[in-house]
Design a protein around this nucleic acid. Sequence first.
DNA 1: CGCGACTTTGAGGAATTTCAATAGGCGTGG
DNA 2: CCACGCCTATTGAAATTCCTCAAAGTCGCG
Lengths: 260, 260
Amino acid sequence: MSETAERVPRGLPAAFRQYECGSCPLSTLKFFRPVSDEQAAFVRRFKRGEALFAAGALILREGEKSNSLYTVLQGWGIRSKVLSDGRRQILNFVMPGDFIGLQTSVFGEAEHSLEALTEMRVCVFDRERFWEVYENNAELGYELTWIAARELQVLDISIVSLGQRNALERTAHLLLDLFRRGCQRGLTENGRLPFPVTQQHLADALGMSLVHTNKTLRRLQELGVIRLRSRDFHLLDEPRLAEIARWEEGDEEEGRRPYL
Amino acid sequence: MSETAERVPRGLPAAFRQYECGSCPLSTLKFFRPVSDEQAAFVRRFKRGEALFAAGALILREGEKSNSLYTVLQGWGIRSKVLSDGRRQILNFVMPGDFIGLQTSVFGEAEHSLEALTEMRVCVFDRERFWEVYENNAELGYELTWIAARELQVLDISIVSLGQRNALERTAHLLLDLFRRGCQRGLTENGRLPFPVTQQHLADALGMSLVHTNKTLRRLQELGVIRLRSRDFHLLDEPRLAEIARWEEGDEEEGRRPYL
DNA sequence: CGCGACTTTGAGGAATTTCAATAGGCGTGG
DNA sequence: CCACGCCTATTGAAATTCCTCAAAGTCGCG
């Protein structure tokens, strides 16, 4: 968990292993759609390998060139941008099954940073050969657009939260979202989610100060809807949390993308 | 400007005309990339026609089914979502050249509303035949993913603004963004942009109250960087506005998508 | 034990919202 | 042409929310 360098240089990532897509840890999750052998074989051609990053590693640095696309296999990460005066906004939390790299400009300049929150295993694809997908496998190209489109919806939802919900609602909404996504990815166990997210992370994602984030979390715990202990998020009253969050129908993630 | 119904029913839109893509008003803008005749011909196959909406028309209603995709040809619109208690968040302002509909779920349920701010002409494509694009024209499929990816970047930037910038910065940032986009689309004339946006719209986009939006705009005018008169936005000091907005390199829209 | 990273608390102050009321602009009907 | 209604913009003041500052407290780990 700590032998990897804090900052991983470009080029080949820290560690490599070659798994077959068929035995990909994501393939067992009911949240994802199974894929045909031939589709898996096709995707395999673009896979450069797998990389393992230590907790805290900076996988992608805003403004730097990146020739990789990733699918997260294990672990949590954050996607973020910082203003030149240092203020940081976390764009979203990244979990197993999330695909990363579309947001990057065509020229390969990352427009955001990506940091590992826990040890993180990713499947690495070659950006240079991205174009070949469209040339050779229309279905997968379609799928990619679809993935991007869903990502758009997710960001729309964040924008609504940041713009319209107050501190309590916003915090509740984020927590519920994380919990439900964690659930989909098979990370929860009877109401508990291992939670490698600090209050500072939450603050940076919610656009709130650390102090106010703390007080808001405290309030949610006093209300008895959640319990946040060291790195463990216990959801006590999901309906109530959804109520507080002003959760909307459309905020639900409608799943079923292929697991590649 | 007023003979069209306030609320346009599904099915065939209000008015139809058939232009050739070659004479599309967007094709003359240097902001967009020219397309080959064959590509234009291909796109033409999916074009259902053009529709003209009156100012104020609701083109897409959140939660309703939509079997269309649009490219905006003329006019301004807003893409928005509302919470069940009525709070509205404007997700972004749409202008000529913007492509709309990717954000919609595959099942065709619109996850946002789209409202015409001015009279608005759009090019209508058939969502049902969306898949064919990937099957028959890889290049265009690639382009679509690319468009979605850029949209992702734009939303990321909004999230940073909403989360990290204060009222003054945020307002300045939005105004500058609108002005520059208007410029790209050829809507400006020596520093002036026709501006069909009310303070309530700005407030709903910025996640601020109407009153505070008003005071913030007033302040920007007292600083002498902008001038906002009835439906006319005059940018007096662009560098200063960018400075106030804490505008970042990456906030620039890197253009050159095909104009279709 | 002591350091470092994270969490918690109190208090004053700044930013923002809400409430309430007024003013301006524009189109319609009288 | 004027009055009226409606939408939009403006303003002042009180109420809240949220932020900043400062200081302690907790926890894991070497």
